[in-house]
Write a protein that binds this DNA or RNA. Structure first.
Length: 636
RNA sequence: GCCAGGAUGGCGGAAUUGGUAGACGCAAGGGACUUAAAAUCCCUUGGGCUUUAUGCCCGUGCGGGUUCGACCCCCGCUCCUGGUACCA
């Protein structure tokens, strides 16, 4: 493999870095994890850009640091292998040239970089410290990245781990300028990267590090040696792809006029349909019919751009086009956007947490600023809520076609039907969690479906007796409690597994309920109706069939979601747990609005509880209404 | 390394966000029905102890703490997963 320099297209997402960062705060419908990932990805840092004049020359070495407070501790400078100064010196020094070559061929992958040995070489140049005027040697080092800041750093071994390791390897001086807050810290063992008070720093001695940052930056600014600087890790978005099947980048290269955009009325640029890729350069470059065109400005022969766009380009905005897919006057219909956008709920995998979801946010702001929709009504963000669903694992690895470890739900569907397959999948785990695939539970889902079906048959059973009022009230209470629980589960984090559990419970209760009289049958039918309506989103076919058979609904999916009858929830008595010093010792049956004293009297009248109170002094009692009574005692 | 999330029975997972830990299901064991099997139904199922009771002790990764009360909050660890940047 060879690394080549290519002329490619970028989109200046860095201009939106600040807004992309600050707007994350308003995305409270997003998981904090994803917002954190984006914050780290944008990687804003505040520091100082400082110029160190080169000894014996007119130019200066410019560096970026987040620790201007340690400026007085600089003992050497380090530049990246790709830095102009390193390249310049390599012209005269073959050894240096060889080292740069070596650096160029190493991997830039972070995992490899982390394990890489820190290597470097002196450039043979020196710079002048802007405050002390001391001469400081300049090194080239493999751990300095050309792509971040200025590609050069000031090295303060006493207060930076990398600089420390490097200084140790090459015997460079270590100069302490901060007194660590931790008195036990031994600088002979490791760098101190925390806060502290400045020492060995002349006029800045005695300042704490935070204050020193500002004061030293101000000093540099006054003396024209540097200024405060905000840096972002985020880089511009490389959108060029050397592929055939992508959106053509609508640009024309003209000998006379340079780079010219395709005229708006000529958009979109359409791909040639028949093309045999030959390998090598961008496939489109070889397609004469596509590539050759005329310049929109001067009319002379010109060539189209042969690269196509990154697919993130489309995934960043396609959902908006759904609001107005027949609209041909522009990319988007502002009116339709006002009605539909932004997206209420986005569901996707975490693997898109930074790239796709960051690009889409950026694109939204771009379209907003291009006036494609009304910013006030649509807002500044494309996705109001985000749910990141977990991955399905097989033997601990992410299921994927390339790994060949996929499981086709088809087998389950063929054997048990789509309803059972869906029920089983949703019941297995909460949606945001990764799940190790295991189909052992599918039988359980199948059995549940069968129980519901058989329960339905009971709706037509003959009346042959009477029901106890209290049993009916209890059953109705359970029915309406179930509505509350299932609704809650739907509304809080799509806890479908919990919703299904509650439905199974309701089904079990109905199964155990003996409907003998008219009243009992009415309650059974109510419970069945509620069960089927809430089950319908999970098992539409089964629910529909059951409801029809029981004569409840012709089309249950059209029936409204059931509502809790607050009255049904009421009960004459409740079980109140009684604790002694926080440990459960029994329970008492009391009215829901029981007072503390009443509950206390009741507890004392219960032998199993009273036993604990005999040889003790009651210190205090706490009543948690509807839940428990805690009696705090101490021995006599 | 750093950032985030997590650790609950044999297993997947619940716990109304500080109030009965283990819902619901799987697996396992026992029983009913059956000539038999399947299907179905019922019972048991965190560990231990005993006097078998509305019994006691222990128990939510480990060690402390706050609280009448902690899976939940605080401090200090261990391990796992994801993200990542040697970013100066």
């Amino acid at each position: 493999m060879v690394r080549k320099n290519l002329a490619q297209w970028f989109i200046r997402i860095t201009d939106y870095a600040e807004e992309l960062l600050t707007d994350l705060d308003q995305l409270d419908g997003w998981p904090e994890r994803v917002r954190d990932m984006q914050r780290n990805w944008i990687g804003r840092s505040t520091g100082a850009q400082v110029r160190f004049p080169l000894v014996g020359r007119d130019d200066a070495l410019e560096i970026y640091t987040t620790r201007p407070d340690t400026l007085m501790g600089v003992t050497y400078m380090a530049v990246a292998a790709g830095h102009p100064l390193a390249r310049e010196q390599a012209q005269y020094k073959p050894e240096l040239a060889a080292f740069l070559e070596e650096c160029a061929s190493i991997s830039t992958k972070e995992a490899d970089m982390a394990q890489m040995e820190k290597k470097g070489m002196p450039l043979g140049l020196e710079v002048i410290h802007p405050i002390t005027g001391q001469h400081i040697p300049v090194w080239v080092a493999n751990f300095v990245l050309m792509g971040y800041g200025t590609g050069a750093v000031m090295s303060v071994p006493a207060h930076d781990e990398r600089d420390y390791d490097f200084a140790r390897s090459y015997g460079l001086p270590i100069r302490q300028v901060i007194q660590p807050l931790d008195a036990n810290h031994d600088l002979a063992q490791a760098a101190w990267t925390g806060d502290g008070v400045l020492i060995n720093s002349g006029e800045f001695d005695g300042l704490d590090a935070q204050t020193a940052k500002k004061r030293i930056t101000a000093w540099l600014q006054q003396h024209g040696a540097g200024e405060e600087k905000v840096n972002y890790r985020l880089r511009d978005w490389l959108v060029s792809r050397q592929r055939y099947w992508g959106t053509p980048i609508p640009v024309i290269h003209c000998q006379a006029c340079g780079v010219v955009p395709v005229a708006e009325e000529d958009l979109p640029v359409v791909l040639p349909e028949s093309l045999q890729p030959t390998g090598g350069a961008s496939p489109l470059a070889c397609c004469e019919a596509f590539i050759n065109t005329t310049c929109p400005q001067c009319g002379q022969p010109a060539k189209r751009e042969a690269d196509t766009f990154d697919t993130f380009m489309e995934s960043s905005w396609y959902m908006n086009r759904y609001t107005c897919n027949h609209y041909d006057a522009a990319m988007l219909d502002a009116e339709a956007m006002q009605r539909w956008a932004p997206v209420d709920q986005y569901i996707g995998g975490v693997e898109h947490a930074v790239l796709h979801l960051l690009y889409a946010r950026f694109y939204h702001k771009l379209m907003r600023d291009a006036g494609l929709f009304d910013a006030k009504s649509v807002g500044d963000e494309p996705f109001v809520r985000l749910m990141t669903q977990g991955m399905v694992l097989k033997n601990g690895a992410k299921m994927s076609k390339s790994k060949g470890n996929t499981v086709d739900p088809r087998q389950i569907i063929d054997r048990y039907g789509a309803d059972t397959a869906r029920l089983f999948t949703l019941f297995a785990a909460p949606p945001e969690k990764d799940l190790e695939w295991n189909d052992e539970g599918v039988e359980g889902a199948w059995r549940f479906a069968g129980r519901v079906w058989r329960l339905t048959a009971r709706a037509d059973e003959a009346v042959h007796g009477e029901n106890n009022d209290e049993d009916c009230r209890r059953m109705r209470r359970l029915i309406h409690q179930a509505i509350g629980r299932v609704t809650h589960a739907f509304e809080h984090g799509f806890a479908f597994n919990v919703a299904i559990a509650a439905l199974m419970e309701l089904s079990n209760h109905l199964q155990g309920f003996a409907a003998e009289g008219e009243q009992g049958h009415a309650v059974l039918r109510e419970g069945l109706d509620v069960l089927l309506r809430m089950l319908a989103p999970f098992v539409p076919h089964l629910a529909c069939e059951c409801a029809e058979r029981a004569g409840l609904h012709d089309m249950i999916i059209l029936a409204p979601w059931p509502e809790v009858d607050e009255q049904a929830l009421e009960s004459d008595t409740i079980e109140l747990v009684v604790q002694i010093n926080g440990k459960k010792r029994g329970s008492i049956s009391v009215a829901p609005d029981v007072t503390r004293d009443q509950a206390m009297a009741r507890a004392q009248a219960t032998p199993a509880i009273a036993r604990w109170l005999e040889k003790a002094i009651i210190v205090k009692t706490i009543l948690v209404p509807g839940r428990l009574l805690n009696i705090v005692v101490k021995p006599q």
